[in-house]
Amino acid sequence: MTQPTDRVLAEEASLVERSRDGDDRAFGELVTRYQALAARVARFVAPGCDVEDAVQEAFVKAWYAMPRFRRGAAFRPWICRIVANEARNRVRSARRRDALVLREAAAGAAPTAPVPDAEVLAREDAESLVRALNRLRPDDRLVIAYRWLLDLSEAEMADALDVPAGTVKSRLSRAMAKLRTEIAQEGVRP
């Protein structure tokens, strides 16, 4: 996922403004743009919940909260926050399920194109890393996902996590330390 361009941001600002004024078609465009992201956020927070239901309810809530949406604020972290809260509400009754699952490694399949600015991992290491991520608390997994899988900026992360901007780095650092601990556990597992 990449950072949105200026043109995309300008379009989005217009959609948000129209949605604030009660234009449900403009809001529908926002739903189309962000429902895939919302599904991923819900999955990171509450893997066992009904993702579609959580996403739908989050957008309906967002619609009703639009008049109070701060003018000039970014929509992406705001909707992330609402979805994460919605998913968190549902995690209590959700069955345990892994948040992150790797695709099956097909024999003879061509290797996937490397992601720019990413470490290259052997399959076995990727599996260990995913298992470690899945053992993290949902909020720690979410902060890591926001930074490294969804590419939110620090300011967006602060909005999405509803924390002061100055605490984002320390939260991420704590989550990474916990991830490192979980990875170390991989090494001692039978």
Binding site: A39, R40, A42, R43, V51, L100, V101, L102, R103, T112, A113, P114, V115, D117, A118, E119, V120, L121, D125, A126, L129, V130, L133, I144, R147, W148, L149, M176, L179
Partner: peptide, 14 residues
């Protein structure tokens, strides 16, 4: 973090 990022293309996306 970059190792986590490398998972992106091989993760099952909901």
């Amino acid at each position: 973090g970059r190792a986590v990022r490398s998972l992106e293309p091989i993760l099952v996306v909901p």
